[in-house]
Nucleic acid binder design. Structure first.
Lengths: 342, 342
DNA sequence: GTTGTTTTTTAAATCGATTTAGCTGTGGTT
DNA sequence: AACCACAGCTAAATCGATTTAAAAAACAAC
């Protein structure tokens, strides 16, 4: 039953027409090239009958389009990124485009190599959570005329299409939630990073301190790419050193997990001994005891926005319109940010 | 700085040699075609100098190879599948192959369409967690001569290369863990499914019942693709109906989450009111109170085995050797499967 | 100075589409 | 009858590689 695939030329010969005619008909250019409607019907019937599918690779070579979209993220096994990946995948269903997901581990050098590879594959568009120091590459990408959407972070120096959430507002909300529930000194555990999403979260934390009248920041900055055990250890030491601290905002999901581990190891009781808010909600947070309050990123809307911008640009055959879309973060109030009634 | 890419023919003209010569040299066929070493050097120097990279699409068209590997999973946003995806991605780094990840949602029709799309893209190999009813498609794929590896489940009727874990043994261990800790009647919450991995887990549960002398199975089979809330509701009702039950094994991560939610809603205390073991470990299970005992799947080894089999077949240019590799499951003993001392 | 052999290099076909430029044939004008 | 306009269709070039089959060059033998 495995019949060799027929090329447009073979079919043309079978039908006694030219390949040009068939190509016109396939691509909806029959009218503008004045192919008679009888011939159109004849060809279409036959194509339908033998279930002809053009060879994508040959089309790619000729047209320079691959029907592939490259999507770079920090790590496909991370819940946040894989959720967005899934959302984008769904948004692109039946679009004719397929996705090439790639994890960068936030390494600049790797990301740059990956972009080269994607360019070689003639990828039609790029969806990127950029690693630090990728300005030059991204700028060149956009100059090449291909649609590019950045998400989760971007470069202030670059005039790109960015899908962001309100990191500053989110961190502010998360911190204020703790102050509002009578925790006095609120600390912030974050990643050592110059990237905009992290910088904004720090700003939001500081906004809240100013608002609440806490004079000094209590800050722990963890280096990138540390394993979870090391991270947890650093947080534990930080907790032990800062006795006066009553609550803490974790800047990422990963840090919240490491932090909860640290607290468990210390034997501190979440809620009464220390108030907790995480950034980035998680399916499991509602099941912890106490359940964990979190600033949720609207994953569905992020992917929707990504898809919409990419599709628009792709159909209009132009680059993505430079703009920064800021989606609101949402505070999911649970038990870890409230002192229990004794 | 954006210079148009040079084709092998342009370069040939520049150098005053033929494209054939260059092609031979690029592909390491210079020796067997007796290209003189001076010429080789001259060409290689020049190629290095202008940083020539062959056009992958053109190569694809000519050779029929795309350097793409298609990987089908149930859902890229699921922790188990995304971890394996990441593992495979790492294993394939610097291999020259790129991965096309695709979620099937376990729908037969979708998966079949997806395979068609992948075939059109001339994907070189397939890594598949097959949806039910995909026997025919997979069998045709293998006949086409392309390497295919199945993982997480397979078809007994098909002579394929399968990377599995010991589902039966794992479920047995999980159930016995509960019996060994003095829980009397152990239930099993699973998915309504004929797939081999689920059938094996059920067998393992029954093995343990036989061993422990529990005469009747206490079984809840949840339909596929139910949302988490509905699932949780069904589990709650199941719990309410089966008063004599003292412990439960959940067949998947997803079910464990839904089950914990149900228990929280019921106000039952995990450990004392009911013993719990999950299938498929999770980064968060150690942080629950009580922490959740689980049968862990060796994600790293699964991806390693997948990669190894695919790479072997790819370099030898043959299909994957038919065989079923069964990796051991591991019981991660935590608090949820032990009655607390009162 | 032929002829034969071996070494080195290359012209041209091919993969399967798209697209430019142009070829027919019909009918209308003058 | 000569010319043009236009509808309807197609030959051939092209994208950028690989590969087959053969040409060209170098050398040896007689």
């Amino acid at each position: 039953m495995i019949r060799k695939k027929k090329s447009i030329h073979t079919i043309a010969r079978d039908l006694g027409v030219s390949a040009t005619t068939i190509s016109f008909i396939i691509n909806g250019k029959a009218k503008e090239n004045r192919i008679s409607s009888e011939l159109i019907k004849k060809v279409e019937d036959h194509l339908g009958h033998i279930n002809y599918k053009p060879d994508i690779i040959a089309q790619s070579l000729r047209t320079g389009k691959s029907n592939l979209i490259g999507m770079l993220m920090e790590d496909i096994s991370d819940a946040f990124f894989s959720s967005i990946a899934r959302g984008v995948e769904m948004g692109l269903e039946n679009s004719g485009y397929k996705l090439l997901f790639i994890s960068t581990k936030n390494k600049t050098a790797d990301a740059s190599l990956i972009l080269d590879l994607l360019k070689e594959h003639k990828v039609d568009a790029f969806i990127i959570a950029p690693s630090p120091g990728l300005e030059q590459e991204i700028s060149e990408l956009i100059e090449s005329g291909k649609p590019v959407v950045l998400y989760d972070r971007y470069f202030k120096t670059l005039n790109t299409c960015n899908i962001m959430i309100d990191n500053r507002g989110g961190a502010y909300m998360g911190t204020m939630e703790l102050f509002n529930n009578d925790y006095r000194e609120v600390a912030f555990v974050t990643l050592r990073s110059d990237q905009v999403q992290m910088a904004d979260r720090l700003l939001g934390y500081k906004d809240a301190l100013a608002q609440a009248g806490q004079s000094k920041t209590i800050l722990l900055e963890i280096p990138y790419n540390l394993d979870i055990h090391q991270t947890s250890l650093q947080i534990r030491n930080f907790f032990k050193k800062n006795k006066t601290m009553e609550a803490v905002l974790f800047a990422t999901n990963y840090l919240a997990i490491a932090g909860l581990q640290a607290l468990k190891d210390l034997g501190w009781v979440v809620g009464s001994d220390i108030g907790i808010v995480g950034f980035d909600d998680n399916a499991h947070f509602s099941l912890f005891s106490p359940s964990v309050t979190a600033v949720a990123q609207p994953v569905g809307e992020i992917s929707r926005a990504i898809v919409q911008n990419i599709r628009e640009a792709l159909t209009a055959e132009r680059i993505c319109e430079p703009r920064t879309i800021v989606l609101p973060a949402q505070l999911i109030r649970r038990e870890s940010s409230v002192k229990p009634l004794v």
